[in-house]
Amino acid sequence: MTTAPSGSAPGATTAATTAAATAVPVTGLPYLGSGIGYRAEIKDAVDSPANRVDWLEVITEHYLFAPPDVRDVLHRLRRRFRIVPHGLELSIGAPREPSPRYLDALARLVDEIDAPWFSDHLCFTRAAGVALGTLTPLPRTRDIAREVGRRAQRVQAAVGRPLILENVTYYIDLLSPLSEAQFIAEVMEHCECGLLLDLTNLDINARNHGYSAMEFLDTIPVERVVQVHLAGGTGGEDDHMDLDTHSEPVPPAVWDLLAELLDRAPVRATLLERDQNFPDDFGELQAELDHARRILDGARAVRAGVR
């Protein structure tokens, strides 16, 4: 995990302090289609005009404080793709407010690449100034949900683009007053942000903790889902837990969840996540991208016909 520097330069004027403190609605966001996470292992294939990639997601912290030559990569990619920054270190659930320096750099980044939205995780990654190195789930109480929602709203206003929050996997579930879905719904009651629904995380959590993925979709405000993540994990055999490894093809259960979700909400983008065990032939990833596009476009056509 990349850790972003904290603090701000003395006397600096930040985007977080100058942005208009108004809500940025998630309605009316553009339709991006079927995208993939931009990684060094597949950059040549992504750059090839022969492959069909609609948009790219990049890791925010890889570019946030990067030198100009690294940022130039984004400028080049932007000529062909819409780009969305996906963060690891916003730590929206931490007791302390996000660093003004981080928010200022994030606001500059999204403006520089004209990102339609930016995303991060519904979790915390820092405690008492210490980087934890993992996406740590939050205690699921109404008070915490309320504070996280209000903090997310402040971050969204500071950056000036829609923020979408992602559900995370967790392997130990402490006794909490709210279910995972109830907690997400409560957070959304206190902000006008959107949701990045990681369907693989949903499938893994449902399997590991014995709840219904359909009931989860019944509980969260699916109309707030802007984007989904699709990936494959490992485990699940011989009483072992399923693991969110982003190392395998998208499993059938996750494709089924995508179809179910698209019956319920007009999702604007799907994103294929692969972080390891990349196939030698990009055609394997291209097949998944094409499959996601067919499902997404098909649901969009049906919805347009109903209207």
Rank of each mutant, 00 (worst) to 15 (best):
G7E: 13
T14P: 02
T14D: 07
A19Y: 05
T22C: 00
T27Y: 00
L32E: 07
L32F: 05
S34I: 07
I36Q: 04
I36H: 06
G37V: 02
D44H: 09
A50V: 10
N51T: 01
L56H: 05
I59R: 01
E61S: 12
E61T: 11
V70D: 12
V73N: 10
I83R: 02
L90P: 01
S91A: 12
G93P: 09
A94I: 09
E97W: 05
S99E: 07
Y102K: 00
E112I: 05
D114Q: 15
D114L: 10
F118K: 01
C123N: 12
R126P: 01
V148N: 03
R151C: 02
P162G: 10
L163R: 02
N167T: 12
L175V: 07
L175W: 02
E189N: 13
C191G: 03
C191Q: 01
R207P: 00
R207S: 13
H209R: 11
Y211P: 03
S212N: 02
A213V: 01
T219G: 06
V226L: 02
A231R: 04
D238M: 11
D239Y: 09
L243R: 14
P249I: 09
V254S: 04
L258W: 06
E260V: 10
A265N: 04
E284D: 09
Q286K: 10
L296F: 11
D297W: 00
V302I: 06
R303W: 06
